[in-house]
Design a binder for these strands. Structure first.
Length: 861
RNA sequence: GCGGGCGUGGUGGAACUGGUAGACGCGCCGGACUCAAAAUCCGGUUCUGGUGACAGAGUGUCGGUUCGAUUCCGACCGCCCGCACCA
């Protein structure tokens, strides 16, 4: 190689910090709260991280994806808002405080400092001036204002609700924290307990949350579907059954059903253990009381529900079916949920599998009232209910009707009789937001014995967390604090107590995107800023947030609109859900997980331990996780290869929505490409500069066409999140630049153009390398980060020659090269000549010519 | 159980509205440079047969529509994900 001076390796360790400083100095990524540049806006946001202490490869992927979009949009003429912050409240900080004698705030802020430094090494085009953590009083104080506004608007309720209670730790557990019916820390059997909790009335917005999904064309279908199922709209009827004799003043039971058409098939009525009638019966009925206690002990976790047999107990009371006037027994059953519908069902064993099992178990009758359409008159059930649509039988005025018609006919009759009505039910439940935790946003409420729950007055906000708390005993430190909770009632001035529960941390992440628009505003949002920047144009994050976070943020946006904090109804116009970063997992002969750096891979595919030399079992490729030790530390990768290599690798191998496997060889491949491009840039920068020739032919023209096709292809790929395809097109362009410096001036010019283009195309993905190349080609000419995206020359995208496939009966028999746009007759003649041997001795029935694509001869022997 | 998605070389994947399947990367093979190795560069790489131009097969399986199917339709097999006593 002649250009030995440029053969030196690319010193990324020096170059990357250099360019990061240059961007910062030029304020390349700074956004205005309310710009007046006249340029269109684009808000790119990645789901902000929890400050655990270290960034992981999932973060690298997430933030690289967002950064590509941000840099690309900036280059194509948008004002871009691309902020970063910290989802900083949560249990791990309390656990750390408990375990290592630190306090949650210090631990969290130290983690933030460490992670900020790591993120900065990645060269992300972030406006760091907007950074905040949700545990900053300036942030959560504004959150308290929003809560009080929601309260004023009737979107907040306080009521008792069933929770998983850990009797040893004296705290509520989330469903995820209950393992096999026991508390994950204490190991104690979890109880179902009723506690007064604060709720946000997300159910008020159920219809809007469902309908709004229609207006999100740039969301993945499956996420919308998951939300749709979660919201769970169902149409049915409420029916009131009269008790044959009143119990404690109760004289009827109302049930919800989606199958009013099967009312004649009733065999029993079942109520939830928490149902008022069940409670009333239990007063006098010890068997029922015992059953209710047993159900409560079972907990509310999904695992507990799943493993439970269908069981029930007869209450001794009966109800009358309004359609046939007959009396049916009322049972308390463990499979009836108080939270859904009315907490009571009518049992129709013939049309519902659960009712069928229950009836079988307790010997209740199973009258047939629905038959499949084509079933004969003696249709009978075997060992399963028939829950499909069919024809109604044995049902008085409904006989002969199809399921659909029978439903409306039944509802009409219920309305006429004054015992029922059509009802739309939702699976979605109100959002319980109380947590008995210290490290969260205090709920700004004061409880007064005389005045009830009172909002904390505006001039006393924010309610900040006390710092002198201890974690040496179970329960909520806020509750134990000697003075914090004791305050005067804002209404009457008498001694009162603060609410010691804190908000579910999902609230913190439900509006941060709005705060980023004006993070220092004295109000929760600055209307001018949110009106300019919202909605987020592109949101990027993991699929694991498909329901909760994204649904809560959508709800918050609608509630904030109602309370005047924003003017949009949906927070995220575009959503992209990335796949996970995975890695092989390793175990030693004793079954202990091993870190990748402890494993030596041998040429034959087997693996041994680096130090002991003992054999290692190569396990499944799984999501990187600490417990399986199959993690790769981004910091180590950046030390070894640089940030650009890490970024390039996570973009290159897979479509971003799929899982990507981190491999050492893949990382090395990416690193080689960085080096190669850098070397090529050196060669081309050192070549003589020439003026643009008047015209291009031959090699030079071909190279220019390739360059401009690369621009078009990469542009399209970036627009559609096909980053792996963009990478492939860039590889192609780089491949065409190899070889010695040519003598031909036109080719020299074309090579320079191609390399210059490459610097721009590569910059969203490998920004430091882009700058490095550009600086070599144009010393002193500024930063790629501030330059426009290249535009493909349309004339160079046009092809003058095409390769045409020639088929016989749809099978490829040859190809011909013809001028583009050649007419049919000419092409067919050329094609016939090209495949003449295949056409001998046959009759051509039909000739098909698709311009610039194929010629196909349909022949008969 | 309900809902959804995906099956393409050794491997990750590409393929516009149906039109040359396997772009590009990884790996592997061969070559150049080197005393040697690393690095780098060049070439090859779906399978089967053939030295070869070439022939046949081929996008989970079976079938259908079509001049032509990875792409559209039907059935099946396998894998993955979400929800789940929601009445």
């Amino acid at each position: 190689m002649s250009d030995t001076a440029d053969n030196a390796r690319y010193d990324f360790a020096a170059a990357e910090p250099h360019w990061q400083a240059a961007w910062e100095q030029a304020a390349c990524f700074k956004a205005e709260d309310v710009p007046n540049s006249g340029r269109p806006k684009y808000y790119v946001l990645e789901m902000f991280p929890y400050p655990s202490g270290k960034i992981h490869m999932g973060h690298v992927r997430n933030y690289t994806l967002g950064d590509v979009v941000a840099r690309y949009k900036r280059a194509t003429g948008f004002d871009v808002l691309h902020p970063m912050g910290w989802d900083a409240f949560g249990l791990p900080a309390e656990n750390a405080a408990r375990q290592r004698k630190t306090d949650p705030a210090s631990w969290t802020y130290a983690n933030i400092a460490a992670m900020r430094a790591e993120l900065k090494r990645m060269g992300l085009s972030l406006d760091w001036a907007r950074e905040f953590a949700t545990c900053d009083p300036e942030y959560y104080g504004q959150q308290q204002k929003i809560f009080l506004d929601f309260w004023k608007a009737g979107l907040v309720e306080r009521r008792a609700s069933a929770v998983n209670w850990d009797p040893v730790d004296n705290t509520v557990l989330a469903n995820e924290q209950v393992i096999d019916g026991r508390g994950w820390l204490s190991g104690a059997l979890v109880e179902k307990k009723f506690l007064a909790q604060w709720f946000l009335k997300i159910t008020d917005f159920a219809p809007e949350l469902l309908a709004g999904l229609q207006d999100l064309p740039r969301w993945p279908e499956r996420v919308k579907l998951m939300q749709e199922n979660w919201i769970g709209r169902s149409e049915g009827a409420e029916v009131t059954f009269t008790l044959t004799a009143p119990v404690d003043g109760l004289d009827g039971v109302t049930v919800y059903t989606t199958r009013p058409d099967t009312l004649f098939g009733m065999s029993f009525l079942a109520i939830a253990p928490e149902h008022p009638l069940a409670q009333a019966v239990a007063v006098h009925n010890e068997e029922a009381a015992a059953f209710i206690r047993a159900c409560a002990a079972h907990g509310t976790s999904e695992a507990a529900i799943e493993s439970a047999e269908k069981e029930g107990v007869f209450t001794g009371v009966s109800v009358v079916n309004p359609f046939n006037g007959q009396a049916f027994p009322v049972w308390i059953a463990n499979f009836v949920l108080m939270e859904y519908g009315t907490g009571a069902i009518f049992g129709c064993p013939c049309g519902d599998q659960r009712d069928f099992e229950f009836a079988r178990k307790y010997g209740l009758p199973i009258p047939i009232v629905v038959a499949p359409k084509d079933a004969g008159p003696d249709f009978a059930l075997e060992d399963k209910a028939f829950d499909g649509d069919g024809v109604i039988v044995n049902s008085g005025f409904l006989n002969g009707l199809a399921t659909r018609q029978a439903k409306s006919a039944a509802i009409a009759r219920l309305v006429e009789m004054g015992v029922g009505k059509a009802v739309v039910n939702w699976r979605l439940r109100d959002w319980g937001i109380s947590r008995q935790r210290y490290w969260g946003c205090p709920i700004p409420v004061i409880h007064c014995e005389d005045c009830g729950a009172q909002p904390v007055p505006a001039d006393q906000l924010p309610v900040t967390l006390p710092q002198d708390v201890t974690f040496d005993r179970p329960g909520n430190p806020l509750d134990h604090h000697p003075t914090w909770k004791h305050v005067a009632c804002p209404a009457c001035g008498k001694p009162a107590t603060r609410e010691t529960d804190t908000f579910d941390t999902f609230i913190d992440s439900s509006w941060y995107f709005a705060r980023f628009c004006a993070p220092h505003a004295q109000t929760p949002t600055d209307l001018a800023a949110v009106n300019h920047w919202l909605p987020v144009d592109q949101y990027v994050g993991g699929i694991e947030h498909a329901i909760l976070h994204l649904l809560y943020a959508r709800f918050f946006t609608k509630a904030m609109q109602k309370t005047g904090h924003v003017n949009v109804t949906e927070p995220f116009a575009g959503l992209f859900t990335q796949g996970m970063v995975t890695h092989e997992s390793y175990k030693d002969s004793e079954g202990n997980w091993l870190y990748p750096e402890e494993v030596q891979k041998d040429a034959d595919g087997s693996a041994t331990h680096v130090t002991t030399g003992l054999p290692v079992t190569v396990g499944r490729i799984e999501k990187m996780s600490k417990s399986k030790r199959n993690t790769v530390d981004p910091g180590v990768i950046i030390d070894r290869f640089g940030a650009d290599t890490a970024r390039w690798f996570v973009l290159s191998d897979n479509p971003p929505e799929r899982d990507v496997e981190w491999t050492e060889t893949g990382a090395q491949g990416a690193f080689r490409f960085v080096q190669r491009v850098h070397r090529l840039a050196g060669v081309i920068a050192a070549a003589p500069r020439v003026a643009a020739p008047a015209s291009f032919t031959g090699e030079a023209k071909k190279l220019r066409q390739l360059t401009h096709r690369a621009i078009a292809a990469v542009t399209e790929a970036l627009d559609t999140f096909a980053f792996n395809v963009a990478v492939a097109r860039i590889y192609e362009l780089a491949g065409a630049l190899a070889g010695p410096t040519p003598a031909d001036e036109a080719l020299l010019w074309a090579r320079f153009e191609a390399m210059d283009t490459l610097a721009h195309l590569v910059a969203p993905m490998m920004p430091h390398l882009g700058e490095e190349i550009f600086a070599r080609l144009h010393p002193g000419a500024g930063l790629v980060a501030q330059r426009s995206w290249p535009v493909a020359d349309k004339a160079l995208l046009e092809v003058d020659e095409v390769t045409l496939a020639v088929q016989v009966n749809g099978k490829l028999r040859g190809t011909i090269i013809v001028p583009a746009g050649n007419d049919s007759e000419a092409n067919i003649a050329l094609a016939a000549a090209a495949v003449s041997t295949s056409l001998q001795g046959v009759t051509i029935v039909k000739r098909i010519h698709v311009p610039d694509r194929i010629v196909n001869f349909v022949v008969k022997a």
